[in-house]
Amino acid sequence: MSNSIDYDSVVSAVVDILEEAETVLPQDVVGALEIAASEETSPVAKEQLEAILKNIGIASRQKVPMCQDTGILIFFVELGRDSRMDFRLEDAILEGVRKATQSIPLRPNAVDPLTRSNSGNNTGNGIPDIKYELVDGSSVKITVAPKGAGSENMSSIKMLNPTEKDSIRNFVLETVLNAGGKPCPPVVVGVGIGGSFDKAARLAKSALLEKVDVMNEEEKTLLKDINSLGIGPMGLGGKTTALAVHIKKAHCHTASLPVAVNIQCWANRHASVVLGGDE
């Protein structure tokens, strides 16, 4: 027998995960920043990382957002095939966002792309972005990832020729090089390879949700190359340009090789909740 999920519990769960994501950095990210701070030898680089760690401490103790750019809100919903809801899930998520904008508070960041008029509550045409995935079971997992613009603006996508797989690494390195200090390094780099124009970008974005302290050999090698550039924390030089690289792949058209690089600032914020499920 599975539990049905009610509207109010979704609204309050969305407010809760938003508060957690905005004020408390996941432990794996904090751990990676602490290691970086201990390994940096340049005083300027060390100072940047120590300021970040101090900032994280203040934010979680005082329950205030760690960054004033509380992001554009991206939701990943894993919808159980057997879940039951007698309301529109997207309405509940939107109401949670409007409430959290007032209560946490969040900076109103959603604007019309051309008139630049601000909706005032972080919702608008197509925003927040809600990505749905069907999964087995009767529960619903909602993850929120607030995405700051500084790092999002430095992200890039390229349609390579199928024979150019050796230049994937160059494309990633050039994207990081071109970004310099702008995306608030140390960054996390999400790479999507294959799929289609939009699927590659979705893979790159979802790669940012992976734990920063777990990487395969391919990812570790790319991380080493990125850190050899010496851009360092905040682009002021140092050993830590990136904390992690995550690569996700999908099959693609025989004539295509899409590659997307999504850059994430050190504030790799995300939080999840699971609702419903079997009794």
């Binding site: 970040i52 101090k54 957002p65 004033q68 608030c184 600032c265």
Partner: peptide, 13 residues
């Protein structure tokens, strides 16, 4: 002058 990016809670102090 560069202030550490993202350190919004620290700046507010």
């Amino acid at each position: 002058l560069a202030f550490t990016g993202g350190c919004a809670a620290l700046a507010a102090m």
